[in-house]
Write a protein that binds this DNA or RNA. Structure first.
Ligand SMILES: NC(=O)c1ccc[n+]([C@@H]2O[C@H](COP(=O)([O-])OP(=O)(O)OC[C@H]3O[C@@H](n4cnc5c(N)ncnc54)[C@H](O)[C@@H]3O)[C@@H](O)[C@H]2O)c1
Ligand SMILES: NC(=O)c1ccc[n+]([C@@H]2O[C@H](COP(=O)([O-])OP(=O)(O)OC[C@H]3O[C@@H](n4cnc5c(N)ncnc54)[C@H](O)[C@@H]3O)[C@@H](O)[C@H]2O)c1
Lengths: 210, 210
DNA sequence: CGCAGTACGTGAATCTTTTCACAACCCAGT
DNA sequence: ACTGGGTTGTGAAAAGATTCACGTACTGCG
């Protein structure tokens, strides 16, 4: 199998969401053109992205919506439950915990950790907040697949290390810091500050030019 | 001036943060090699990124840390205050509002909007929550530069339209939906769901292969 | 001063991603 | 069965981003 770029995966993710909309609208077939339009991509790109994983369309007709949804679902691996551990029960952590899209997409937060002794022992819904020292055993017990980091930047790397040590193979990081993880562990970042600075850059550039 | 890619800007943003660390450590000069190492990039990339904007280094010596910080600060346009309007005073909105990094980086939330009549009129710190109907006049009055969207996905596009209508030229969107804005308005997205699905994809792929 | 060492800046090469463009194919209507 | 309109899947070209590699220029030291 060829290498598939991250961007293709990101786009598949948006195709997936859009296809659900099309399904709700009662559409049976959809062309690469229509899908591209709503996704803000080009038809060629849609076809190329899909062709990385097989041939799903019917020439002259387009893609069968229901079929394509289930194909992408299985490519992305979101046809199963994923068990998530959240580290950092602060403001962002609490927003994430109560974020319903999570659950809807089969990502279940099964453990919450915080180093603050005042928070340890409390319950969020049916999940008890535990101390990071117990991460290893709890991660194993609850079969955690994914770790989410929502702690201050300067402790993020040590949390990542603890996650790796506990056997977690996939980490989503919200802290504004570059983290390093060993091969075999996948790390993704969500980085608001960078996006804000991109906005700032574009506005500044336009101002000085015009 | 040549076109500069988004990735260069993202990297400049991380160089900027790392340079502050180096400054704190008391380092006076830094080489592209050292910077690259901490940034998880290559020395050539660091030099190429910087060279888009001028020549800041000293051959044989490296870059003067303090100087480079101020150069990047001015390139990114973060040497001034930016005035931000937050739309959606929900869980994410409240996390964002109380996020201190914001203020530290000179991004000030000067207006908050929510369509929920129970929330309108309340105060968050010294900012009153207003109704989106008043967006246009308030945005003008308070000289808002940047709009942040933290409303449910299905109202995000209409909020974006209102922002554009109010004269906002830069939007940061947290809703999991592709938004369309006219030319001249810059849109950036922060998309957690996509990153989660990327993790899911990678784990699924590895599982089926090994 | 002159020389050895170091690290920048950048043209050229390489690698990656996107776009183009068209053969192959399906379907509906006659 | 044939035709015309429409859409896929994919080589090949184009565009874009990264890496290489080297000329150049500065530093520090004797
Ligand atoms: N608040 C936001 O809107 C926002 C947005 C984007 C990114 N972030 C990032 O998310 C992270 C958390 O932000 P926040 O606003 O929720 O901060 P916060 O201070 O509200 O919460 C951080 C929590 O982490 C806990 N913690 C600290 N060290 C820990 C450790 N070693 N192990 C476990 N728990 C630990 C603290 O006790 C606290 O409860 C930061 O890195 C921030 O940059 C926040
Ligand atoms: N909660 C999270 O951790 C999280 C993480 C990532 C992305 N998001 C996204 O952020 C958005 C908000 O999430 P949330 O969890 O804060 O939801 P929420 O329901 O807690 O808050 C949404 C707020 O938006 C307000 N609102 C609705 N329509 C509005 C309109 N037209 N104008 C102004 N205000 C309006 C509601 O009154 C509510 O207060 C969603 O799109 C979600 O996908 C949330």
């Amino acid at each position: 199998m060829q290498k598939v770029s991250d961007w293709t995966i990101h786009r598949l993710s948006s195709y997936h969401r859009l296809l659900s909309e099309f399904a709700n609208e009662g559409k049976e077939y959809i062309s690469s053109h229509e899908l591209a339009q709503r996704a803000g991509a080009t038809p060629a790109q849609v076809r190329r992205d899909l062709s990385c994983f097989g041939t799903f369309g019917t020439k002259g007709k387009g893609y069968l919506v229901a079929d394509l949804i289930s194909k992408i679902t299985s490519i992305l691996g979101i046809d199963r439950d994923w068990r998530v551990a959240l580290v950092g029960a602060g403001r962002l952590g609490s927003a994430l915990f109560s974020y319903k899209e999570f659950r809807k997409r089969n990502f279940h937060i099964v453990a919450v950790f915080d180093s603050d002794r005042h928070k340890v022992g409390k319950h969020w819904a049916d999940v008890q907040i535990d101390h990071p020292d117990d991460m290893k055993s709890i991660v194993r017990q609850r079969k955690v697949d994914i770790g989410v980091i929502a702690v201050p930047a300067d402790t993020a790397q040590s949390v990542a290390n603890a996650m790796v040590d506990a056997g977690i193979k996939a980490i989503l990081n919200f802290a504004h810091r570059k983290l390093f993880v060993p091969d075999g562990v996948t790390l993704r970042n969500v980085n608001m500050a960078m996006e804000l600075e991109t906005l700032s850059y574009v506005m500044t550039k336009n101002r000085t030019r015009r």
